[in-house]
């Protein structure tokens, strides 16, 4: 077979194989990407049984798919922060004895304004608004 025809045949076969490989890999690559599951946007959440939270304790509340740490500082004062540590995403907890928010994963501490006191967290916690009227406590996004 003359060299040119061989080269043309090789080119056609080669590009055919590459094109078909691409047609197999494209759907696979698309399949691997997890589809976005739409979530109803949550702007505020009512906390059931909030009156059972005693002063100087806290509870983790579901806010859509995120955990929020609701702290009852005293009889009338409430604070709420996104409960995920700004360092590496662990869920934080309230320590009554030091009145601080603590992340057990890498020993990060935040104060009652969500600001970093010590440890590796790079940013303060996201703050939420708390509206308390009698027994009813509502946590809302900051506008």
């Amino acid at each position: 077979m003359p060299d040119n025809s061989r080269r043309a045949l090789n080119f056609l076969l080669g590009s055919g194989i590459i094109a078909s490989l691409a047609s197999f890999l494209y759907p696979v690559a698309k399949f691997l990407r997890p589809p976005r599951v739409p979530e109803a946007p949550v702007n505020e959440v009512r906390v059931p049984g909030a009156s059972q939270i005693t002063p100087n304790t806290a509870r983790i509340v579901k806010f859509g798919t995120r955990p929020v740490l609701l702290i009852r500082v005293n009889e009338t004062k409430w604070r709420a922060f996104g409960a995920t540590c700004t360092h590496l995403n662990c869920t934080v907890q309230y320590r009554s004895e030091s009145q601080q928010i603590w992340c057990a994963c890498h020993n990060g501490f935040y104060d009652l304004n969500g600001r970093v006191v010590s440890g590796p967290p790079p940013r303060p916690l996201d703050e939420f608004v708390v509206r308390a009227r009698g027994d009813e406590v509502v946590i809302a996004r900051r506008s």
Binding site: P27, V28, K30, F31, P34, P35, V37
Partner: peptide, 9 residues
């Protein structure tokens, strides 16, 4: 229904 090319795979 939701994953791209899921029906095909």
């Amino acid at each position: 229904t939701r994953v791209e090319f899921g029906w095909l795979i």
